[in-house]
Design a protein around this nucleic acid. Sequence first.
DNA 1: GATGAATGAGCCTTCATTCAT
DNA 2: GATGAATGAAGGCTCATTCAT
Lengths: 215, 215, 215, 215
Amino acid sequence: MIDRDGQPLIGEFPSLPKQERAYQKREALLESGRKLFSEKGYEQTTAKDIAAHANVATGTFYRYFCDKRQLLMALIKDQLDRFMPPNPNPSWMNHDPEIGLASMLKKHDQRLDKLGLHHVLHELLPHDPELAQVYAEVRKKLHGSIYEGLLQAQKLGYTWDDLDLTEVAWSILTLTEKLPDRRTDQSEPNYHAIAKIICRLVFPPDILKQLKGNS
Amino acid sequence: MIDRDGQPLIGEFPSLPKQERAYQKREALLESGRKLFSEKGYEQTTAKDIAAHANVATGTFYRYFCDKRQLLMALIKDQLDRFMPPNPNPSWMNHDPEIGLASMLKKHDQRLDKLGLHHVLHELLPHDPELAQVYAEVRKKLHGSIYEGLLQAQKLGYTWDDLDLTEVAWSILTLTEKLPDRRTDQSEPNYHAIAKIICRLVFPPDILKQLKGNS
Amino acid sequence: MIDRDGQPLIGEFPSLPKQERAYQKREALLESGRKLFSEKGYEQTTAKDIAAHANVATGTFYRYFCDKRQLLMALIKDQLDRFMPPNPNPSWMNHDPEIGLASMLKKHDQRLDKLGLHHVLHELLPHDPELAQVYAEVRKKLHGSIYEGLLQAQKLGYTWDDLDLTEVAWSILTLTEKLPDRRTDQSEPNYHAIAKIICRLVFPPDILKQLKGNS
Amino acid sequence: MIDRDGQPLIGEFPSLPKQERAYQKREALLESGRKLFSEKGYEQTTAKDIAAHANVATGTFYRYFCDKRQLLMALIKDQLDRFMPPNPNPSWMNHDPEIGLASMLKKHDQRLDKLGLHHVLHELLPHDPELAQVYAEVRKKLHGSIYEGLLQAQKLGYTWDDLDLTEVAWSILTLTEKLPDRRTDQSEPNYHAIAKIICRLVFPPDILKQLKGNS
DNA sequence: GATGAATGAGCCTTCATTCAT
DNA sequence: GATGAATGAAGGCTCATTCAT
C-alpha cells in the first residue's frame, strides 16, 4: 500500500498476491493459537480469542481451519519432532560426549520452552487417539534412533555391558523430555550435570575418559 | 434399628447410619470422578456426568462438593504423595538394591496406573497455581528425601564421586514419575532393568556388587 | 423420655402439648418468613433459609405450608388490614383532628415499618391475581370507610363543598399508604405536617378552627 | 448499498446498514424486556423469554446486554425521569391551574401505563442500591422543582400560609406517582377531581378563583 | 411428626460454528 | 474471501419440593 520509492503509483495497490496473503493469515492464526494455547491451555482458549489476536474476524478462522482442534493439530503435527530431543549425533563419540550432549540438551530445552506447547500437548494426548498415535510414533522413532546410536557404541565396546540398552534409550528420552519440569522461574536446568548423568548411563567412566581424550 | 449389642436382629434392615451413607455417597462421587476424569480428562467431564455415574442427581453432587474443581482437588490433594514414588527405604543398601528398587517401582507404577489421574494432574497444573504449588512442594520434599538417602550413601563412600547428587536425585524422581509413559497397552515396564539403570546412577558397579554380597 | 403420667421426672422439661408445639413451630416459620422476606425480598429468600432461621428442618416447612407462596399469603392475608391505615375514628371531629390524625399516621407508619412486608407485598401483587384481589378488596373497604367518615362530616357541613369526596378519600388513602416512602434513613416523616395537609383536604380552615376549639 | 442522495436506486435491497440493524435488534430486545417485565415481573422473566419474544436466539441477548439486570437498567435509567410526573409548568398560574394540572396528570399517567414498568421498578428498588440511589435522586430533583414552584407562588401570596411547603410538594409528588394504582380495569382516574384536590393543597379557594379569572 | 438428603427442572451464561451480507 | 452477528446446544449451578428414614 505504501509507496516505498517516492514515485506515487496511481491507484495501484502493490498488495501481495492472494495466495501469499492467505498464507500470511494462516500463519498469523497459527502463531496466535500457539501463543494463546500455551498461555491459557487448549480448553481455555476460544476460537474468537485466536481470531482476534490474529486480527481477523471469527469467521475467517474457519476458512483456514475446520475447527479449533485442527489448528492445534496443525501446530503440533507439523513440528511434533521438535518436541523431541534431537537425534543424538554420532559425533558425540568423537568429541567430549558430555559437552556435546549438554549443548544439545540446552538447545532442545530452550526450543521447547519457546514453543510452549508442552503442556497443551499433554492436555490433549489422552483425548485424541489420532494425536496420541502420531506422538507415540514420533517418540518410538526417536527412541529407535537413540537406541541405534547406543547399539553402535556397544559394538565398539563403549557401553556398559550389563544394562538393557532399550531401557537406557527410554531413560535418556525421558530425562530429556522432562527437562522443562526441571526449569524453575529463576534458574535454568544444570544441563552439564544432566549430561554427565546421561553419559554415565551409557559409558563406563574409563571409556568416557578415553573418549574425552580423543577430542 | 441398628443392632448395638452384637446380636443380629432378625428382619432388621442393615441400613447404614446416616453419616455412613453420606460418606459412601461422597466416596462414590469421588470414585466416579476419578474414573471419568482419568478416562476423559478434566474439561471433558461434567458434574452431571459424575453424578450420573455415581447414580445420584446433579444437585447431589453439589451437596458434597462445591464444584468440579473441588472434587478433583479432594481426589488429588489427599493423595498427592501417592503420585510420588515412595520414599526409598534405607534398607536398600542392606539388601540387593536392584531388587528392592524394582519392587518399589512396580508397586508405585501400579498404584499410579490404578489411580489413573496422572494425566489429569498435568492437565490442571498449568492452570491451577494452588495445585501447582502443593504439587511442587510434595515433589520438592520427595526430592529432598531421595537426596538425603544419596548423601548418606555418599558418606559411606557408596556413590559415584563425580556426579551432582542433586541432579541424580532429580533424575531418579523423573524416571519414576515417568513410568506410566513407558507403559504400553500390552506390556508393563521392565521394572528390573529400570532399577538397574537407577542403581547405576548411584552406585559404581563394584560397590553394587559388594552390596549385593551383603544381602 | 417423656413422663406421660403426670409425675414430674427430675430434669424433665414439661414440654408443650403437641398442638401447642406445632402452633409454635408454625409461628416461628411465619416470623422467620416475615423477617427474611422483608429483608431480602420474596424471590431472594429460599424455603431452606426460612426453615433454618426457624430452627426446623427443610421438610418441616412443607408440613406447615404447602409452598413458599402460601407462607407469604398467610403472612399477608392474616394481616392485610394492617397494611392499611386504621379506620379513621369519628372522634376525630370531636377533638383536634390534626393531632388525632398525626398520631394515627405515626402508629400506622411504625407498624408498617415493623412489619416490613410493604415491598414484598408490592413485589407479589402483579403476579398473584388472588392476592391482588384480596388486596383490592381490603383497600376498597378501607376507602369505603374513609369515605363514610367524610360523608358524615359533609352532612354536618364540615367539608369543602367543591371536592369529590371519593377522590379525597383516595387521596387520603394514598398519602397514608406512601408514608414509608417518605421515610429516610435518618429521620421519620413529619407526621404532623402531613396531618395538616390531609385535614386541609377535608376541612375548610374556619371549620377546622372551630373543631379545634371544641376540643 | 444505501442511497445517500435521496434518489431511490432501482434494484437496491433496502436493507438497513449494519449499525441500524443492530440498533433495531437492541430495540426489539428492550421492547420485549419491557413487555415481559411489566407483564410477569422481573424475577419471573428469563433472558430466554426475552430473546424468544424478540425472535432472536438466547445468545444474541448476551451480545447486547451483559445480563438481565442490565437490560432492565437500560430500560429504566434512560427514562427514569419519565416515571416522574413532568415538572409543573409555571404557566399553571397564568391559566386555570386545575385544567392545566389535570391535563398533565392524564398525560403522565398514560405514559406510565404505557411504559408498564411501574411495578418492576418497585420490585427492584429494595434490592438494587444503585438503582435506588438513581431513583432517589431523580425523585429528589423533581421534588425540588415542585417545591420551587410552590415557593414562587408563596412569594406572590398565592399559597396557604399554614402548610409546610416541603410536605405539600411531597404530597403532590406522591399523589401523581400513585395515579396508576387508582386506575381500575374499566375506568381511568378522574384526573380533574385529583387536580382540584392538588390545587386545594396549594391555593386557597379565593386565590384559585382569582387565578381562574385571569385566564 | 420431624428430618435433611436427594431430586431434577430450569436458569444463566459461554462458545464453537454457521451464514447473510 | 472476509466479516462478525446470530445461533443454540451444553455446562455450571440453584432451589422448590419430595421422600426414605
